[in-house]
Nucleic acid binder design. Structure first.
Lengths: 190, 190
DNA sequence: CCGTAATCAGACCATTCGGTCGGTTTAAGG
DNA sequence: CCTTAAACCGACCGAATGGTCTGATTACGG
């Protein structure tokens, strides 16, 4: 049962490297996320890092997909409660909010900003984010509950608000304002 | 009349350096905004840069105040149309939106994100942003037009939406969605 | 006119960066 | 068992980084 196969070992190393990359992004920011910091955070040699990710760009692209994957996992795990018929839009919004905050989202935000001026990151992030959006929509939709499900447009609008909320909270955390903004969003659409 | 005085020369140099810093932030991002790039963009020697801003942190703190100043100038210039009694909330929102997009805001956004993990930048940005918010509120308020003026809370909420809009547009510019989000915000408060 | 302080110039420095490379270990297959 | 390839190691490299330092130039008060 103990998976000590060769390719499994490589897989684990890559996982540790990507996880370390997210940690660095969250704790030190994009500018201070260097290969040396990532390797020491992961507890991995330079050779190992460079073997799996030949350049910084490759590592960052890997991080993009990793963070998307992790966010989707988190959402799906949280969304199981939806299947049990329990109700409304408010719950969906709360679910999405939980994914659009916290360390995972912060790492994604750093990559998002960096992608603006980094072509290879940009080329990886845009389609990844598009796909993530699709998966999120799917995970939040319950067959038959047409009244509570969100349209694509509503989802886009909600994402905008949540992003604004997240980036605002980065420097000015204000739970009261957060709750209020979400309440208003819900209230505005009856 | 020609201001060739000594301290005026220094002031101009500082101005060019700060302007070059904003240019670098917008065109290359925070991570690639180095002292060398700033000095060559500004067309200034290393000695001059380091004379006015002894460290990178000092330069960035200077940039924070510069961008705040420039944003406020832009808003005030645009807000003159308000004084002439011309109406409503929609115009205020449009005004604010014009300040919360474009290169100037982008530079501020880079600094905002960087401030999360840079203490001295954080210490400079938080109070500066608070003050800017205050000044913005003032610039948008017209005495007597109580019905059209925005409350502090409404302003905070609007800023959240506009920030979300801005950061979304960084990677997925969608004028249609932008307009829609703003319309909804206006409509929701009748 | 002179001294002094601000401004500017650019050579220089230690450190860190991303990336290369030769060699070793480990696992898989014939 | 032996070959082969993937995984890993860490010394090494040139380039770029933020920052220091010595002098030159400029402006201005006395």
């Amino acid at each position: 049962m103990s998976e000590h196969t060769g390719q499994e070992r490589g897989r684990r190393t890559r996982e540790r490297l990507l996880e370390a990359t997210l940690t660095c992004l969250v704790e030190h920011g994009f500018a201070a996320t260097t290969m040396q910091r990532v390797q020491s955070t992961a507890g991995v040699s330079r050779g190992a890092l460079v073997h799996h990710y030949a350049s910084m760009d490759e590592l960052l692209v890997g991080a993009v997909h990793h963070v998307a994957k992790r966010q989707l996992e988190a959402l799906r795990r949280a969304a199981t409660s939806l299947e049990e018929g329990s109700t409304g839009r408010a719950q969906r919004v709360r679910l999405l909010h939980s994914v659009m905050s916290g360390p995972l989202f912060l790492a994604g935000l750093e990559l998002w900003m960096a992608a603006r001026t980094n072509p290879s990151l940009h080329d990886a992030l845009v389609p990844a984010e598009r796909e993530l959006g699709r998966q999120i929509a799917e995970a939040l939709t319950v067959e038959g509950a047409d009244r509570a499900n969100l349209t694509h447009l509503e989802l886009d609008e909600l994402l905008i608000t949540l992003r604004g909320l997240a980036i605002t909270s980065v420097l000015r955390p204000d739970p009261r304002l957060e709750r209020l903004a979400i309440e208003r969003w819900l209230g505005a659409r009856g």
